[in-house]
Write a protein that binds this DNA or RNA. Sequence first.
DNA 1: ACTTAGCACTCTCACCAGTAGAGTGCTAAT
DNA 2: ATTAGCACTCTACTGGTGAGAGTGCTAAGT
Lengths: 350, 350
Amino acid sequence: MLPERRAHLLSLIIGEYIDSAVPVGSETLVRRYELPFSTATIRNEMKRLEDEGFISHPHTSAGRVPSDKGYRYYVETLMQERDLPWEVKQTIRHQFHQAGRDQDEWIQLSASVLARAVENAAVVTMPRSVEARLKRLELVGVQDTSALLVLVLQQARVKQQVLLFPEPIEQDQLTAIANHLNEAFSGHSAAEIGRSGVQLTQLEWHVANAVREIMQAADGSEFTDSYLEGVRAVLRKPEFDTSEKMLNLLEVLERRNLPRLIPATGGVVADGVTVMIGTENREDAMHDYSIVVSPYGVPGSVSGAMAVLGPTRMHYPETISTVRFVAGLMSEMLSTFYDEGPVREQEDGG
Amino acid sequence: MLPERRAHLLSLIIGEYIDSAVPVGSETLVRRYELPFSTATIRNEMKRLEDEGFISHPHTSAGRVPSDKGYRYYVETLMQERDLPWEVKQTIRHQFHQAGRDQDEWIQLSASVLARAVENAAVVTMPRSVEARLKRLELVGVQDTSALLVLVLQQARVKQQVLLFPEPIEQDQLTAIANHLNEAFSGHSAAEIGRSGVQLTQLEWHVANAVREIMQAADGSEFTDSYLEGVRAVLRKPEFDTSEKMLNLLEVLERRNLPRLIPATGGVVADGVTVMIGTENREDAMHDYSIVVSPYGVPGSVSGAMAVLGPTRMHYPETISTVRFVAGLMSEMLSTFYDEGPVREQEDGG
DNA sequence: ACTTAGCACTCTCACCAGTAGAGTGCTAAT
DNA sequence: ATTAGCACTCTACTGGTGAGAGTGCTAAGT
């Protein structure tokens, strides 16, 4: 536990550095905050903060920069998470409500809204359900020998795939197959469909197999579907003054890397929001960045993750509040539409 | 028409510059290509090429750099478009065939394959059909007062949306509504649904309205859906040595900008592939970049565009061949699945 | 008429002081 | 405990210099 004054000082240094992106020196501090001490005193305190590892020195004659440990202390003890101002909330709500359409669009929108609000990159993963279960399937003829297979899964997810048949097939037949399979498999998971003992014709088996595969893929894809927004916003920050650093971040943000970043555990701040600072991240490539994550979704039904990613120099209080708020909003919306009571569940199963 | 030797020289300069990204001087040229002339002669020729506007000078003591006009001449007269080597084609085919799943995935895959093959950014727009027509709709209950509306459109596109009802509603009712609307609207466009005189209940009207809106949105979205890949590949090129230039390109590649870039007309090279070089692009921001576009799709059915975007210094012959090849491949795949004979069309309408 | 050697010229780039400025850490005095 | 004072360090900017690359022109050669 840091003594009062030094803690305050650390807080000021971090605040100043977050705003200016410039290493802060003793004089700036005294002048800007009208501290009742001389620069020398401040320097002594800064020295001790440095010895304790909360701040560091880019080089001898530069000001101080917060270390990861400093930020951690700040996030956990020093900062007060203020509730978002009403106008900001309103703005976000507004942007949200002019969404319509389907789930994918919401996810993307939330990423976009989040990115804009915090001026950093935002990643939102698709909500995944515990295990995909078939609700209903539909076969619609396209060509003589092909049809579109549409699966409606629980939690209102829809999957589609074009299916080829070895021989021409009529819509009547397709409908018959669909009906039979619906009877047999509605409410079932991929695994259950696989090991069911239902008697199937050759064609039905062909379709059932495709259904199983799609559902397996849906189970497997977990976090791979995600939306990323605000890349330019981050890259405009002064830390990315060379193209090398930009490429570095862009590499981190590669689609296939995102899943590994998100399920960050530990460092919990408060109800669900997790902050990972710099070297706290597992990935080496992330050592200069921080990430603020919150889960969202409907308990026991669907859940996804919502994250903000930026340089360690980020506005933690605001970012944390915003992530929490947007995640809450999203959860709310999801539950309005997708909360499935056990009643309806039963109904479909029969 | 340039005289033989000067044309050849221009060709060498462009080839050399494309490979090295360094302004090419007379000596390099003579040495590297063992030209049967002295550097002085080459210099004289270069001077003339410059006077004619085919190449230019970054500064007095630098080598020559092709101008847009130079590239244009190269693309149209000088270069020979070689067919892609067999292995490359095989590689691309291979990557393509391990795709599965739905249409979106193909589009994305094709962008990714293209980007990797040409080492530049690739944009592939979703194929759009002339006008969305309803093939079949489905209503699946989710909660008491909500249902998932699934639309299957022609060309095997699927749209979905959650629909809220003012009062609890049973699956039986939903099915009845779906049946009635299918009868009434199958084969119709958004406009036709709007002005149809079919007698509808309150609930049916509610659903029909949603259907119409979704279809309108689908018609309107045209090129807005697209996949972008290979951003990092472009940004690694030596032209992007400052973060400023990177941001510049990233801005151009913003999702909402893409549609404006793609429908480039004019400058047609050969069956469908269009090349726009530097200032030939309408957008000011594109003046340092070239774009190679090809349409793809099934004539009279669906069509999208496939583009490669990079610095004007790009390997035009290879890029053009590759774009043509991938577009062809994609069209092939689409027609396998999505070609709709008029026969089936009629069938569904009834 | 074309080619070429020769040369003066221009411009960039890398290197090297030198200096101003910011900021520190220490010491000694309050 | 605080602070004034000061020597010290490091960066960033400045201007200058020289090597190197490449040009354009001229005049001579084929």
